[in-house]
């Protein structure tokens, strides 16, 4: 078969395939709202944790409460500083060519792996400090309502440290695949 004829035949066959979901515009608007909510939620968490501890320290300025407030704000500051550092340059400039975009994805993947390590350490530091603080201030004699939130914390900790290695493995596989693509391009 003539080469150009072959191409024209393939082109005709390829372009006869029609695939367009009808509600794309609505989906985009919904997803855009969701993305904005995600950012707002991060800010809300910061305010929701930081403001009450600072307020408590101002209302009752005892040394241990001030320490709790300072530690909480330090942790929040470190978390935000890390987040801003790894997201700098990692916002999608979607019109990059494919080669540059693969590099961009690799950078983002490495940033996410760093975030996993950072998250594990931050969580451990926070947990150690918070539990030490809570146990030191636990009511004596023991009150039943005091223990169930702590049980929840332990459960959340177990879930977090099960999730983290799984997510880490997933990101490593993603990175390996992307490095393979980078090599090919």
């Amino acid at each position: 078969m003539n080469v150009d004829l072959e191409l024209e035949t393939w082109r005709r066959e390829w372009q006869s395939v029609s695939v367009t979901p009808p509600d794309l515009r609505k989906r985009v608007e919904r997803q855009s709202r969701f993305l904005r909510l995600e950012i707002a939620a991060d800010i809300l968490v910061t305010v929701g944790i930081g403001v009450p501890t600072a307020g408590w320290a101002m209302v009752s300025p005892q040394a241990d409460i001030v320490v709790l407030a300072v530690f909480t704000w330090m942790l929040l500051a470190v978390a935000w500083a890390f987040r801003l550092r790894i997201t700098r340059g990692n916002w999608t400039p979607a019109s990059l060519d494919t080669r540059a975009f693969v590099d961009f994805l690799i950078g983002r993947c490495r940033a996410q792996l760093a975030a996993i390590r950072f998250g594990a350490i931050l969580f451990a530091v926070n947990l150690t400090f918070s539990l030490a603080w809570v146990y030191q201030h636990r009511p004596r004699p023991h009150i039943a309502w005091f223990s169930w939130p702590l049980d929840l914390v332990w459960l959340a900790t177990v879930a977090f440290y099960i999730f983290l290695p799984w997510w880490n493995r997933r990101k490593k596989r993603e990175l390996a695949w992307l490095l393979g693509i980078q090599e090919q391009t």
Binding site: L24, R25, V28, Q31, T92, S95
Partner: peptide, 19 residues
């Protein structure tokens, strides 16, 4: 395919203002 098409549409929407 529909999920990917949605991601593409979102990326176009986000990038359009910079085009």
């Amino acid at each position: 395919r529909d999920d990917l098409l949605q991601e593409i549409a979102i990326a176009i929407w986000q990038a359009l203002g910079r085009f």
